[in-house]
């Protein structure tokens, strides 16, 4: 398993990706890096079609001027060793004087070796004036592996194919995600990059308390925020929360509800 991890890291370096960039919890779904194994995006195997919808809300730093909202639809079909899926999501930050609309669509194959193409379009409305949309197209390459004693993991590498946000020194783009699982604990390490080249790290630990409840602990290196969250599932309904506390700006509380059938092939936003 360790050898595979090293291989994944080597692949990252070989592909010429320089420094990774910082995570940062600006949008609603930035709050979570991964889910418990039994959640829709978890690691457990299940065949057949799947479709999920989710909606979330929150307030960035608790500020009424910075509401957060998100919608996401995911559908696909999973086979014995792989799955194909299509996902679309919309997230919004702010209102009136400042508004950021973030659209993302992804499609790809998941399984032991994973490959997705993800397109992002972000449009900002600043004091009533809409700015031109900034687009980013990236390939997400990944792999999953299993080891004895229930140990497993996966890694994702984000390679920008088109990056209209590269000129923004403050923008944070994902670079790499590594998830390690040893039930009932899983750990995700995110390595992101800010536009000015600053690498940022994020860390999330999820402890599965039961087949229907999990507790998470999260650190976001981009903002030095620290917090916790809950994931609860009952039948086709899943609820999760995030409570990240910025050392200066205060707490951001997020809530998300997801409903659907089947198991999603991957975690995270589309």
């Amino acid at each position: 398993m360790i050898r595979r991890m090293l291989v994944a890291i080597a692949v990252t370096i070989t592909l010429g990706v320089d420094s990774a960039t910082a995570a940062g919890a600006r949008l609603l779904e930035d709050a979570w890096l991964h889910e418990p194994a039994w959640a829709p995006g978890g690691a457990a195997l299940e065949t057949g079609g799947f479709a999920w919808a989710s909606a979330g809300t929150g307030r960035l730093f608790g500020m009424p001027e910075l509401p957060l909202s998100a919608l996401r639809l995911t559908a696909g079909r999973r086979g014995q060793s792989s799955a194909w899926s299509l996902a679309a999501g919309w997230q919004r930050l702010g209102r009136e004087v400042l508004q950021v609309d973030h659209l993302a669509v992804s499609a790809g194959r998941d399984g032991r070796w994973r490959c997705r193409v993800r397109g992002v379009s972000e449009r900002r409305t600043l004091a009533g004036s809409a700015t031109p949309a900034r687009r980013r197209v990236e390939a997400v390459l990944g792999c999953e592996w299993r080891a004895p004693a229930g140990f497993s993991g996966r890694g994702d590498l984000h390679l920008a194919l088109v990056d209209g946000m590269a000129g923004d020194p403050r923008h944070v783009a994902p670079l790499m995600l590594l998830v390690l699982r040893l039930p009932p604990v899983s750990c995700a390490l995110a390595w992101d990059r800010r536009g000015d080249g600053t690498p940022l790290l994020g860390l999330e630990v999820v402890v599965e308390l039961s087949p229907a409840a999990a507790f998470s602990w999260r650190y976001d290196g981009g903002s030095r925020s620290l917090g916790w969250g809950l994931v609860l599932r009952r039948g086709p309904l899943l609820v999760r929360s995030s409570h990240l506390v910025h050392p200066d700006l205060g707490a951001t509380h997020r809530w998300q509800v997801a409903a659907g059938r089947g198991r999603l092939p991957t975690a995270g936003s589309p």
């Binding site: 919890a25 600006r26 730093f61 403050r170 944070v172 800010r194 903002s223 030095r224 910025h246 200066d248």
Partner: peptide
Amino acid sequence: ARLHDLWGAPV
């Protein structure tokens, strides 16, 4: 007083 970006980083 400080100014932060929306990712929470001080600028």
